[in-house]
Nucleic acid binder design. Sequence first.
DNA 1: CATGAATGAGTCTTCATTCAT
DNA 2: CATGAATGAAGACTCATTCAT
Lengths: 216, 216, 216, 216
Amino acid sequence: MATDMPQKDIETIVKDQDLIGRRHLQICDAALKLFSRKGFHRTTVREIAEACGLGIGTLYSYIKTKEDILHLVYRRILESFEARMLEATRGIQDPRLQLKAALEETLKIYDECQDVVLLLYQESHALGRQGLQGLFEVDRTYVGFFREILDRGIRAGQFAVKEPHLLAVCILFLCAVWDLKRWNLQGYTLETVIESLTTLILNGISADPLVKLQPQ
Amino acid sequence: MATDMPQKDIETIVKDQDLIGRRHLQICDAALKLFSRKGFHRTTVREIAEACGLGIGTLYSYIKTKEDILHLVYRRILESFEARMLEATRGIQDPRLQLKAALEETLKIYDECQDVVLLLYQESHALGRQGLQGLFEVDRTYVGFFREILDRGIRAGQFAVKEPHLLAVCILFLCAVWDLKRWNLQGYTLETVIESLTTLILNGISADPLVKLQPQ
Amino acid sequence: MATDMPQKDIETIVKDQDLIGRRHLQICDAALKLFSRKGFHRTTVREIAEACGLGIGTLYSYIKTKEDILHLVYRRILESFEARMLEATRGIQDPRLQLKAALEETLKIYDECQDVVLLLYQESHALGRQGLQGLFEVDRTYVGFFREILDRGIRAGQFAVKEPHLLAVCILFLCAVWDLKRWNLQGYTLETVIESLTTLILNGISADPLVKLQPQ
Amino acid sequence: MATDMPQKDIETIVKDQDLIGRRHLQICDAALKLFSRKGFHRTTVREIAEACGLGIGTLYSYIKTKEDILHLVYRRILESFEARMLEATRGIQDPRLQLKAALEETLKIYDECQDVVLLLYQESHALGRQGLQGLFEVDRTYVGFFREILDRGIRAGQFAVKEPHLLAVCILFLCAVWDLKRWNLQGYTLETVIESLTTLILNGISADPLVKLQPQ
DNA sequence: CATGAATGAGTCTTCATTCAT
DNA sequence: CATGAATGAAGACTCATTCAT
């Protein structure tokens, strides 16, 4: 589904593709921690180099600019998110249940990766046009996944949704509330949020008014 | 309702409160444009000074640090948002209609002030702890407004919501989708979004299942 | 004796000599405190203005440059030092006793005005050539005072000194040890220092070897 | 005796200790000249960088702050002073002669390094607390050297001194008169000063009054 | 392929001084 | 005479990036 994201493949001096892969992982791990803690701008390339045990020069053999590191990090994050999502919803037939599962897993991921989601929303503008395009693409596949669930539900007569794509975007976005507005949600537990959001959305799109009473 | 946000009043060298007020407006206007276009980090203080027709020294008579400018901008934005919201929903009695109006107005504002909303979400981490507290406070009053509508609807038996505060946060947050995910919503018009979101939310929280069929 | 120091009279915009005098005192008092605490460079003109209750503009009506303030301060300090010295040694006939009194008084002054003496030694290079000349002049009169005592003692056969001016300079300078090397003299009291220095100097210049045994 | 001054070792970005050593020498040489001529405050970091043929960035790879440069300079100066002193007085048995030699050498050093001594006295307050501590420490070892001579003389019955440490401080301090009051000692030669100071001090501390007549 | 020293453009911020009111 | 807002030159320091070894 998302194996072919537009790689905007980072130009490297080193040519050994295998080594590049390993180094990129190394760099991602170090950079992710630093970016989460201090943000993109306040993290220096030198710090990243130190944190991943490479010389600065070596680091620069595997990237062209600092921005590339952000790319690497984003790509990695989104890949892992997507993998988890697919895993969690695979094989569920009922659209309503599958949507529920997708919501729950997304919120769980967002709960675990709070810093990362913040990073995603706050520093993405540090990417150039081209870089953003890549992100958008990935996001689209992620959204596409929700959209498929909606489509199946609509075809099955379970969901009444005029604009499935729009709704998919909204639903995915809404999950981020747990991270982006966390300071305003201090008293709540993840469970409460999962339940409330699930209720809101399922009721919001349900075609059958009578179903609604149960979850509430 | 929110006239007394915690001012964290910027220390200035100039004493004339009136002049300070005017200059701050001047600075806000210039900074807002630049921040929207280039982001906080990529905008230099010198650029801001030039853009508002002040010498750097003069600019620094009205602020202590660059961060203060971001404060000024944020405070200004949120004040104006709140004012518009209050204006648009004042006097509407029916909670359902009032919520509809609030949603519509918020989305309209967010449509007009796309850059500003992005700024709000992306650069807020450039503020220090104290500065963030101020923002949160304002946000809480804004959220509180939605919450009051929900509460009235619940009391009137129109809404079925377990966690009104949580829902209020979600609803307000959801409006930002139009700005934060705009690149994934290219084909849609504001009207479509207003309608879809309104439907989703009203259905999502409606206590009476039979009402739901009409708007859809 | 030193009423006619070369005034390098500060150019002022204000012409009322009387007012100038009062303002200069005002400025001196404020500046002295600030300079002592923070040093000349780290004290801003604005701080001085605030400390003496004048507007910056007003302050600048009574001086031409920041350096002028240092002048004012130095001149004031030296005048007061000299006055105290004269007072303390007036009328003493015996050169040995007079030298003792002069030493004692100088050390007492230096003890009371530790910060000021440091200021004198550390910031004088902030003065331009012309300003330094003024200081030197004052210092010379101060030194001259010691020299006169030495001369009288030499004529009286009490002191054996080849280079009285040089010695006078040294003696006066030596007194500053209490301020400039204070951190290396932590355990000592003023009294001990007075006694030790007096002994050293009187023995060092005494013409009559037999006298020496008594004070030690 | 003073091989282990508290290094407060400057944090550097560059790791190669050997290179650091060489660069620090380079920086010292350039900075010393500039500081002597223009003082610490009036010398810019950029000037220092140019004077030692490094880019500013490079310079800052070897120091953390401008103050560090002053440190470097001071440390270097004091080390060289001490080395010369030790060399000049080594192996002299008679305390009186050794003190004479120490005085003479110190004054010669101070004569050659007039600018440096001024720097030492005038700019030391630009150092922070910690930096000053380092200086004091070095000064103490220097003073300790004089003190040892005095102690030996006292034990040998040649000197009559109640407070040897205090006297040592005074003696060392007195040598600085040649630099700090030079403008008031224009007509004198180094030889005259050496002779006068030596006479003053040796007579001042001599235990045997009869010896005194000879040097005078 | 690895390293890390070198670079300098660019950043925020300060402060003595002036001048219109 | 008094005031204080305006000014901009200048300063210390950072950091992404390169390149010789």
